[in-house]
Amino acid sequence: AVSDRLIGRKSVVMEAISPQNSGLVKVDGETWRATSGTVLDVGEEVSVKAIEGVKLVVEKLE
């Protein structure tokens, strides 16, 4: 599936994300709604860990 190619990809937070609120990330020039178990600020680099419905699950790059 097209979405499977996103797992493991680097992306950049475009709208802040917290455990309570989804935000936005940009992956390969496309904007996606995303969630995370931690707070992520605009501009942080993250990695796509999973896809749940139409949202990406991301975490901060170490």
Results as ranks from 00 to 15, higher is better:
31 T>R: 07
47 S>Y: 15
8 G>H: 04
50 A>S: 10
28 D>N: 09
11 S>W: 03
2 V>H: 12
22 S>F: 09
54 V>M: 14
35 T>G: 05
18 S>V: 06
38 T>V: 11
1 A>Q: 12
37 G>K: 13
42 V>P: 07
41 D>K: 13
51 I>D: 02
21 N>C: 15
41 D>E: 14
38 T>K: 07
1 A>W: 13
58 V>D: 00
61 L>K: 07
57 V>N: 04
13 V>M: 02
42 V>Q: 06
11 S>A: 15
11 S>D: 03
16 A>F: 09
38 T>C: 13
22 S>C: 15
30 E>F: 10
11 S>V: 15
21 N>E: 10
62 E>S: 12
33 R>N: 08
14 M>C: 10
1 A>S: 13
53 G>R: 04
56 L>F: 03
40 L>D: 01
37 G>S: 15
61 L>F: 11
38 T>R: 08
2 V>Y: 12
46 V>N: 00
39 V>M: 10
10 K>N: 08
61 L>H: 08
37 G>Q: 13
23 G>R: 03
54 V>G: 15
38 T>H: 12
46 V>P: 02
32 W>K: 00
50 A>R: 10
38 T>Y: 11
48 V>H: 01
26 K>V: 13
6 L>Y: 07
40 L>G: 02
7 I>V: 09
14 M>T: 10
3 S>H: 13
42 V>H: 02
16 A>I: 09
48 V>D: 01
16 A>G: 08
36 S>G: 05
26 K>S: 13
16 A>Q: 10
30 E>N: 08
37 G>T: 14
6 L>G: 00
17 I>H: 02
4 D>P: 09
18 S>C: 08
15 E>L: 10
39 V>A: 11
7 I>C: 08
62 E>L: 12
60 K>D: 02
9 R>F: 08
16 A>H: 08
54 V>P: 09
39 V>G: 06
3 S>D: 09
29 G>T: 06
40 L>V: 07
54 V>D: 15
46 V>T: 04
30 E>Q: 11
28 D>E: 08
25 V>Y: 01
12 V>W: 08
20 Q>F: 12
15 E>R: 09
16 A>C: 11
60 K>A: 08
49 K>P: 00
54 V>A: 14
17 I>Y: 03
54 V>S: 15
37 G>V: 11
33 R>L: 14
24 L>F: 10
56 L>M: 05
36 S>P: 00
36 S>F: 04
12 V>C: 11
19 P>S: 06
55 K>S: 15
12 V>N: 03
62 E>N: 11
54 V>K: 13
42 V>G: 03
19 P>R: 05
25 V>W: 00
7 I>D: 01
4 D>F: 09
57 V>L: 08
11 S>Y: 05
23 G>T: 02
42 V>F: 05
10 K>I: 14
62 E>G: 11
11 S>P: 05
57 V>H: 07
23 G>C: 03
44 E>P: 01
53 G>Y: 05
15 E>D: 05
31 T>D: 06
57 V>D: 00
19 P>V: 05
35 T>D: 08
47 S>C: 15
34 A>Q: 03
60 K>E: 03
31 T>L: 15
55 K>P: 00
32 W>R: 00
27 V>Y: 04
54 V>Y: 14
22 S>H: 09
27 V>T: 04
16 A>L: 09
23 G>D: 00
3 S>M: 15
58 V>T: 01
41 D>P: 08
18 S>G: 09
5 R>Y: 10
21 N>K: 15
54 V>E: 15
50 A>K: 08
22 S>W: 11
42 V>I: 10
39 V>H: 13
61 L>G: 07
54 V>C: 15
40 L>P: 00
44 E>T: 12
30 E>L: 09
30 E>A: 08
48 V>W: 03
20 Q>M: 12
20 Q>R: 10
36 S>C: 07
60 K>P: 11
41 D>T: 11
54 V>N: 15
40 L>N: 01
12 V>M: 09
24 L>C: 09
37 G>M: 14
33 R>V: 15
28 D>K: 03
23 G>K: 01
36 S>A: 11
40 L>F: 09
48 V>M: 03
61 L>E: 08
62 E>A: 12
33 R>W: 11
41 D>Q: 13
19 P>N: 04
43 G>T: 02
11 S>I: 08
28 D>M: 09
40 L>H: 11
14 M>D: 03
13 V>R: 00
28 D>C: 15
14 M>K: 05
5 R>P: 06
19 P>Q: 05
5 R>H: 10
38 T>Q: 15
40 L>Q: 05
1 A>D: 11
60 K>I: 06
58 V>G: 01
9 R>G: 05
36 S>Q: 01
59 E>M: 09
34 A>W: 04
14 M>P: 00
7 I>W: 04
48 V>E: 01
20 Q>E: 12
10 K>Y: 10
61 L>N: 07
28 D>P: 01
8 G>E: 02
30 E>W: 09
62 E>C: 12
61 L>Y: 11
7 I>P: 02
39 V>Y: 15
37 G>R: 12
17 I>T: 04
19 P>I: 05
49 K>T: 13
44 E>Y: 05
11 S>M: 12
44 E>W: 09
37 G>L: 13
51 I>M: 07
31 T>A: 07
29 G>F: 05
36 S>E: 03
6 L>F: 08
6 L>P: 00
54 V>T: 14
30 E>T: 08
4 D>Y: 09
55 K>W: 15
1 A>H: 12
53 G>M: 04
43 G>D: 05
44 E>Q: 09
60 K>Y: 05
25 V>S: 02
12 V>A: 02
21 N>I: 13
39 V>W: 15
52 E>D: 14
15 E>K: 12
20 Q>C: 14
2 V>T: 11
3 S>F: 14
8 G>F: 03
35 T>E: 08
30 E>Y: 10
15 E>F: 07
60 K>N: 04
14 M>A: 07
35 T>Q: 06
55 K>N: 14
45 E>S: 09
19 P>C: 08
2 V>M: 13
38 T>N: 10
34 A>G: 05
58 V>W: 00
53 G>S: 04
21 N>P: 02
53 G>P: 03
37 G>A: 14
1 A>R: 11
14 M>Q: 07
23 G>N: 01
48 V>K: 00
25 V>K: 01
3 S>Q: 11
17 I>D: 02
38 T>L: 08
56 L>N: 00
36 S>R: 00
60 K>Q: 06
19 P>L: 06
46 V>K: 00
31 T>M: 13
50 A>C: 09
46 V>Q: 02
13 V>E: 01
34 A>V: 03
12 V>R: 07
43 G>E: 04
56 L>K: 00
14 M>N: 03
27 V>I: 15
14 M>Y: 10
60 K>R: 14
44 E>N: 05
59 E>H: 07
5 R>A: 09
39 V>Q: 11
39 V>D: 10
52 E>S: 10
47 S>N: 10
43 G>W: 04
47 S>F: 15
5 R>C: 12
28 D>A: 08
12 V>D: 02
2 V>R: 11
56 L>V: 06
62 E>M: 12
2 V>S: 12
10 K>F: 09
18 S>I: 07
59 E>D: 08
42 V>A: 07
1 A>G: 11
30 E>P: 00
19 P>W: 05
46 V>E: 01
43 G>F: 04
9 R>P: 03
29 G>H: 07
22 S>G: 09
20 Q>H: 12
38 T>M: 13
30 E>S: 07
46 V>M: 01
39 V>R: 11
50 A>N: 06
30 E>C: 13
27 V>E: 00
51 I>V: 12
62 E>R: 11
57 V>G: 01
37 G>D: 15
62 E>Q: 12
39 V>E: 10
49 K>N: 06
38 T>E: 14
59 E>P: 02
43 G>V: 01
59 E>L: 06
58 V>A: 01
60 K>C: 04
23 G>L: 02
41 D>M: 13
47 S>H: 12
26 K>L: 15
42 V>K: 07
52 E>A: 09
51 I>G: 02
31 T>K: 07
56 L>Q: 00
56 L>P: 00
59 E>N: 05
4 D>K: 14
38 T>D: 15
6 L>W: 07
21 N>A: 12
35 T>A: 07
9 R>E: 05
48 V>Q: 01
24 L>I: 10
42 V>Y: 04
24 L>R: 08
44 E>F: 06
14 M>V: 15
43 G>R: 03
47 S>P: 01
48 V>S: 01
26 K>I: 14
44 E>K: 05
9 R>V: 06
60 K>S: 07
32 W>V: 00
45 E>V: 15
27 V>C: 08
29 G>E: 09
14 M>H: 06
27 V>W: 03
15 E>S: 11
40 L>C: 15
41 D>I: 11
51 I>H: 05
25 V>H: 01
25 V>A: 03
21 N>W: 09
41 D>A: 13
2 V>P: 15
6 L>N: 01
62 E>H: 12
41 D>H: 13
